[in-house]
Design a protein around this nucleic acid. Structure first.
Lengths: 346, 346
DNA sequence: CTGAAAGCGCTTACAG
DNA sequence: CTGAAAGCGCTTACAG
């Protein structure tokens, strides 16, 4: 016989243990919360009885009176995306350290689903919300701010006094990555962006242009193409670049997933990286170290960003938050996918 | 001024909207739940008022009386691990479809943390639990079954009538993978297992031995080494194999992460895959398609396994579960990391 | 169809 | 130090 699907035994409540201990349930409540307002010996006795009877306090009942749930909601576009998986890991770790549990939901980048999910979190009375890399902030800001709970955005700052965020300095990081290519001698550097209009893409693109301008390199619109942030978005974009009369000698990608797709496509075209073409990614997913050649990329401290977001939210909840937007450091990781361009005319 | 960290405005309750609608709060409750016991017109009016006043029902209050939370807890060893990320994605998707939210927690493979996390889920009164690829089932089964809520294990069956599980036929899958190597002509095939004693490892090892036996190939203990399920666990294990007087010509790995580490280490030794050595992984993480060469591997339908686990749990909750252990199909994916062995003596 | 009452499991003033 | 009371926001018999 299967005990698991049997009707749930009613969990023992504070009342039950009050009966056992021959005190009022108020006293039990105090003893369990270690209130100083109860005789140490009876408190001890009560706790022992609670322990023995397998008492487990009811979160829902408690939060009904305390008006908070020690719970946060996190919505990501896709948990299967390694970037988000890492961020969520950091969030969970930091939340857990402070006694919070996390609700996780996928939005699949679908604004409607996103809104549904947020609404369900609202019913569950999460104390706060973390939204990672989506456009929800832009689309539904008013709906969100109406919720009147703290929200922190990861990699998706929104120019508003209503939301908080943690991100890296995207423009600056992209500029640094592009500079690296310039320093190697590349003059025709392509940018493979993301076609969904994320703010991070806009900023990285801006950084790319800045680096070009600094080096007095012309900005060539034909060198800017768009993927979809995933490996399969890269081939068509790369193909367009390769078909140019004067193809680029280096590719700077919006993220590592795009770089991964580009790398594989280049290989399938018989092109070698970095001998024929240099490639730089963005994120430093763990797999960047395992590609062949290992990928030069701009590292985002994803796990730390998750931790920072959770801590910021928790600080907000206890009113001790000091800043509204934290900016994390990015770091260029030099590996083997970049090299000086081949001389054109030996 | 920042509205988010301002004290929370008390959410409008059923009582408040009762006042607005000039009815009792019982009637409001009924109208909101679409009970037939209320006049359609007043019901409509009540709903409109609720809508306008931004009413959002309180989950905690509701579950206090209904005695369930429409919530499930999922604990994974590491959300940053792509296998788990995918499983969690499937769980969340299926749960969401049926109105459930999911609490996610990492155990870091630490039994104590695992237990703490499960206890916190218990306080939050989750309706059920999914535990993915951990030893919690083995270590804490009694503590778990005492919770008296349904639990389903993913890839971690436990020989007990108390738990439910979804998994693949590990032994059979490993046998098939090994057979593929045998069919290519390999006679010295190594197994790089996992050192943590997971049941899945034990089963895959058994399958490997079965395939050897079937082919009348001797089982050589020296050809069995252990990694840690991650890329960095592979190099020492592979090094030991390479140092053998008669090294293997093919490597069958416990999982893709191990294969990834092995691939990279082999490359660093100047060995080519599959020319010098064949390599097969297990899982078919998305990255298996992007290694160089792309990895031959045994696919586990991770997302589907997550969906199946969630559905099984939900079925258990509504008493409609039909099976206790679902077995998902695995599939050998042939790519370019395997080939016939090189002839030893030309 | 509707309302008053009781109760879910807790916390916390209030009054000893 | 302790208990009785009220209340958190809901649902649901029970009695009109």
């Amino acid at each position: 016989v299967n005990v698991c699907s049997a009707p749930l035994a009613r969990a023992v409540s504070i009342k039950e243990i009050a009966r056992l201990a021959q005190v009022s349930h108020s006293t039990v409540s105090r003893a369990l919360r270690h209130s100083p307002l109860v005789n140490p010996e009876t408190a001890e006795r009560i706790r022992r009885i609670a322990e023995e009877s397998g008492y487990c306090p009811s979160g829902p009942a408690r939060s009904l009176v305390t008006r908070h749930t020690e719970t946060i909601g996190v919505v990501v576009t896709s948990i299967a995306d390694p970037f988000h998986a890492d961020v969520v890991g950091g969030i969970e770790e930091a939340a857990n350290e402070r006694g919070f549990s996390v609700f996780l939901a996928n939005s699949n980048a679908d604004p409607e689903r996103e809104l549904r999910v947020v609404r369900s979190f609202q019913q569950r009375r999460v104390d706060g919300l973390i939204v990672a890399a989506s456009r929800v902030g832009a689309l539904h800001l008013s709906a969100l701010s109406r919720m009147r709970i703290p929200i922190v955005l990861v990699n998706n700052q929104h120019p508003s006094e209503f939301v908080h965020s943690v991100a890296i300095a995207n423009a600056q990081a992209a500029r640094e990555a592009t500079r690296h290519l310039v320093a190697l001698g590349h003059r025709r550097i392509a940018y493979i962006g993301d076609r969904f209009g994320y703010q991070s893409d806009t900023e990285r693109f801006a950084g790319y242009r800045q680096a070009l301008a600094e080096a007095d390199l012309p900005f060539e619109p034909e060198l800017v193409v768009h993927g979809n942030g995933k490996p399969d978005g890269a081939p068509p974009a790369v193909a367009r670049l390769l078909a140019l009369a004067a193809p680029p000698t280096a590719l700077f990608c919006y993220n590592d997933m795009t770089a991964l797709g580009a790398l594989r496509y280049l290989r399938s075209c018989g092109l070698r990286v970095p001998e024929d073409l240099s490639l730089v990614g963005f994120d430093d997913l763990f797999l960047a170290e395992y590609t062949d050649p290992p990928l030069t990329t701009m590292r985002q401290p994803m796990w730390q960003m998750g931790r920072a977001a959770a801590r910021m939210l928790l600080d907000l909840l206890e009113g001790s938050a000091t800043v509204d937007n934290v900016q994390m450091p990015a770091e260029l990781i030099l590996r083997q996918s970049t090299a000086p361009p081949r001389r054109r005319h030996g």
